[in-house]
Design a protein around this nucleic acid. Structure first.
Lengths: 287, 287
DNA sequence: TATTCATGAAAATTTTTTTCTTAACAGCGG
DNA sequence: CCGCTGTTAAGAAAAAAATTTTCATGAATA
């Protein structure tokens, strides 16, 4: 096992067993890991007031092959790729730039987090059902209305017969028209929207399967045939529900792309046709 | 800016501009980033069938100080929780899990990239106009229809008087009803949608300012009073327009949150009222 | 054909690693 | 109690390895 997860933890754990001067190095590293990444053996030795040899010995003591290997492992823990800012709440006196950076980075972090907690089996199941359905009704109300519209749009683009609806009454009627091989795609952030849940229940009652994108363990997820659950994002602040919507949107991307791949060439051709049609209504690039 | 977030994304982006032999190195790195971490210049040069000098030149080309710096940054991306995959195109034989990871990570990368290229001045201007407008008409057609709906929804939540419309004719009529202190929020991915541009032109003609979320240098951006431009995401593959939609959605988040902060306490109170109203139609948590 | 540019070979430099030496300390016998 | 000896820690310096620069060559382009 060449890479035991987290070198900083290892250093902390092994710290008591180190010789005096190696411990000095350890303390420096624990105190300012990022700074160490910018130093070479000589500089680090100087900072810690020890010899270069001691620095190398320290690296070996904490399980690394040498100084370069040590730096590499340290860099891996530092993981700046994910979240430059810790997802901080927006503050009333934030500048617009700060606000934007906070929202963008917390959104990106939400996506990264969501990616880690995906249920692949459920996704597979949902994609199979979506690809096989002869007709798909996408429902969502409130903030999820836009999502439903978006889902229908994407599925249509790939040749699936999808239709969005945010009107519970209208949706009820459309539901009756879905054949036995129809499908209800139900979207709800909380899974506690009465109207959407009623629709889902009605669908199941008439034998129409329900794919839900919603919170796990919610009433809607219990009604659904398949639930694509996003990890609940804690609702600490005004803008956080937005992040979970973003996750839902991305889940819809995944589902529709999955459907497209599953449908294969027909989907590709259909997309080309759709694009051509749309381009006709566009002002030319030179305009 | 010493560390521009994600070196793998940078490599992918800069790949087309690299010299032939540097591109060989890039490909090798993109293909197997982890393997590269275990190699030194000599080994990597040999693997890529180029000289050591070329490897160093490659590192410089992608914005690193040298080979060690390059390895360090690469290690940072490789960290658990970061972005394990480069935004690769989806392949027809991808498993659903792979597909999902690719889409999620490229989406997160798109957000991070977009955050870097924001025009703070334009954002400020747009937020001021949105907060001051007595009425806001949000228009968008096609895929942007859902965005328009979303924007209106969020603005309403914060007490702004917003209304979405995806019907060009209806929008035209609503536009006439906007007072002098009304505002048109125009959404278009490409900025080349004829109907939306016509609306924007009509708005300007009758003295209604236009805030556009669209591609920079597009016809729509030229019609707009303020343009919030997202960096164009190169349309290499089927699913990439989705990423730019995600960016637009996040921009809407920023705008509406900015408006909320600007409106201050009234917005907060309004949000509380809206939440209370919505909760009334929800099934209780214990259900 | 001249000129620029990309590339690799080799030299120069820097960095890391090993080896060797010195210093400190503990155990043990005088 | 003192000093000797073995053991270990730590640093200095030498050796090795890796990186970076320089320079020459060949290919491509105008």
């Amino acid at each position: 096992m060449p890479h035991p997860i987290n070198i900083l933890e290892d250093i902390r754990r092994l710290r008591p067993d180190l010789k005096r001067s190696e411990a000095q190095v350890a303390d420096l590293v624990l105190q300012n890991p990022r700074g160490v990444l910018e130093q070479n053996v000589t500089a680090l030795a100087h900072s810690a007031a020890v010899s270069e040899a001691t620095v190398v010995r320290f690296c070996r003591s904490v399980g690394c092959a040498g100084f370069p290997d040590f730096k590499l492992r340290l860099a891996e823990c530092q993981a700046r790729g994910g979240t430059p800012y810790v997802s901080q709440d927006v503050a009333p006196d934030d500048s617009v730039g700060t606000l934007a950076r906070k929202i963008f980075s917390s959104s990106a972090a939400a996506l990264t987090a969501a990616a880690a907690g995906l249920d692949e089996v459920a996704l597979n199941d949902a994609i199979a059902r979506l690809a096989d359905a002869s007709r798909i009704l996408c429902v969502g109300i409130g903030a999820s209305g836009a999502l439903a519209q978006d889902a229908a749009h994407k599925l249509l683009r790939f040749g699936a017969n999808a239709q969005p609806c945010s009107d519970p009454i209208l949706a009820r009627m459309l539901l009756l028209n879905l054949g036995a091989d129809g499908l209800l795609l139900a979207l709800s952030n909380t899974g506690r929207s009465g109207a959407v849940n009623d629709l889902a229940a009605a669908a199941r009652a008439q034998g129409v399967p329900v794919v839900a994108i919603t919170a796990p363990e919610s009433p809607l997820s219990r009604l659904a045939s398949v639930t694509i659950a996003s990890l609940p994002v804690e609702d600490t602040e005004m803008y956080t529900p937005m992040a979970s919507r973003l996750v839902h949107l991305t889940l819809i991307d995944v589902l529709s792309t999955g459907v497209a791949l599953r449908l294969g060439d027909p989907a590709r051709e259909h997309l080309a046709k759709v694009k051509a049609t749309i381009n006709a209504s566009r002002t030319p690039p030179t305009g």
